[in-house]
Design a protein around this nucleic acid. Sequence first.
DNA 1: TCTTTTTGTCAAGTATATTTTACATTTTGA
DNA 2: TCAAAATGTAAAATATACTTGACAAAAAGA
Lengths: 64, 64
Amino acid sequence: MKNLRLKSARAAKDMSQEDLAKACNVTRQTINAIEKGDYNPTINLCIAICRALDKTLDELFWEE
Amino acid sequence: MKNLRLKSARAAKDMSQEDLAKACNVTRQTINAIEKGDYNPTINLCIAICRALDKTLDELFWEE
DNA sequence: TCTTTTTGTCAAGTATATTTTACATTTTGA
DNA sequence: TCAAAATGTAAAATATACTTGACAAAAAGA
């Protein structure tokens, strides 16, 4: 399922997918796939994304 | 670095590495490596571990 | 409009997470 | 003590995360 919290947190920082990708040292396609949801990223990448967006793992990746 | 929070949470449930591995559908070696710390598991595995141990991502995998 | 930026997607390749098999050491409990 | 269970570790194979390059469509701004 789509990760709308990620998409929303990125929008709140006014960052494009490419901006976020660069901040996390991955490609734009990887960020796109994670937001799209059909993906299983590594925890280190999730942590990098969280730090770039000033969020925690629970806020962006934990469900219920 | 070692993940002592994970090791501790597992001990609190009185589960062996193999018990936890089965609960997460991975091998004992994978759990061992994650506790040892020189590893970068996928977020889905981290979530499975959290659910097996009644913890959240922040409690087991978030630093600072 | 028109142009630029952003997003969506795909196929083929590379890097690495995870498995399998196996053995040694440590810990636990009788 | 002794045996069984639990842990630590390693090498080779497999599955999959992530990259690279590329193109089309949608959104944004002038």
